[in-house]
């Protein structure tokens, strides 16, 4: 106990990256392998930064918080989507393959435009509290009470960081670009649960009651199995499906 666990290192990692720069007309998708000396507690954030600083400064990737909370660094790590910043290389084999998340617009190399996709999803599903009372809110008055347990349940669903892993892990989303993904469906359940949101099931049905919404989901559960925040996606989608069948 009370020791920072370290592993004997000394491996030379081979990091194979799918590279492409759509802004360069001459660029074609290709795999490039970089060799990196593994260090103690090395994450993919550290490894990729090192590659950019020491080997290839043109390498593109997205990191912001590097602490697993902002959702910027989703990428395909050895075949599956995950957050690169909190992936320790010691948990990976010596040969690591990295690719950008599919289903999102490629910006370059490992950088994809999840922001644009998520904004589109938010606009389409109107992922905000719809309430008549928001106009002319009395900011001086005591806040309305809420059951503590309900607040905790809401936070449970609110923990989504829109990293896009669930979309990249979803077979449906690979085939249908307009599918809202687990991220969108989860947010609908979050607002549906929130008593501050005055929308009815009929209104939610208008948003997700079709093949691009909850009825497009084929229950492949890639989302459930790759969500970095362990959100209860399978449970929420099943719940929403039952509600939407009733509302349909």
């Amino acid at each position: 106990m009370n020791q920072i666990p370290v592993q004997q290192v000394g491996r030379t990692l081979q990091i194979e990256i799918l590279r492409h720069n759509p802004y360069d007309p001459a660029s074609k998708p290709r795999l490039q392998t970089f060799e990196v000396e593994e260090a103690d507690a090395m994450t993919l954030f550290i490894a990729l930064s090192e590659i950019r600083e020491q080997q290839d400064p043109s390498l593109q990737f997205d990191f912001v918080c590097r602490a697993g909370i902002c959702g910027s660094c989703g990428m395909i790590i050895n075949g599956r989507p995950g957050l690169a910043c909190r992936t320790l290389t010691r948990n990976l084999p010596q040969r690591i393959t990295l690719a950008p998340l599919p289903a999102f617009e490629l910006i370059g190399d490992l950088s994809v435009n999840t922001g644009k996709w998520m904004r589109g999803m938010s606009e389409r599903l109107e992922t905000w509290v719809h309430s008549q009372g928001l106009e002319g809110l009395d900011l001086d008055a005591l806040e309305p009470a809420m059951e503590p347990e309900l607040a905790e349940q809401l936070y449970e669903l609110e923990r989504c960081i829109e990293c896009g892993c669930c979309v990249a892990a979803c077979g449906t989303a690979q085939m249908r670009e307009d599918f809202v993904g687990a991220v969108g469906l989860n947010q609908i359940t979050r607002f549906r649960l929130d008593p501050r949101d005055e929308r009815s099931d009929a209104q939610f049905y208008e948003l997700v009651g079709d093949e691009t919404g909850v009825f497009g989901c084929m229950t492949l559960l890639g989302c459930e199995d790759t969500c970095p925040k362990d959100l209860p996606l399978a449970t929420q989608i099943a719940f929403l499906r039952r509600r939407m069948v009733m509302a349909g």
Binding site: A99, T219, G222, D225
Partner: peptide, 10 residues
């Protein structure tokens, strides 16, 4: 996608 994921349910 399926070949990359190695995910049973997929």
């Amino acid at each position: 996608h399926m070949e990359s994921m190695h995910h049973a349910d997929t």
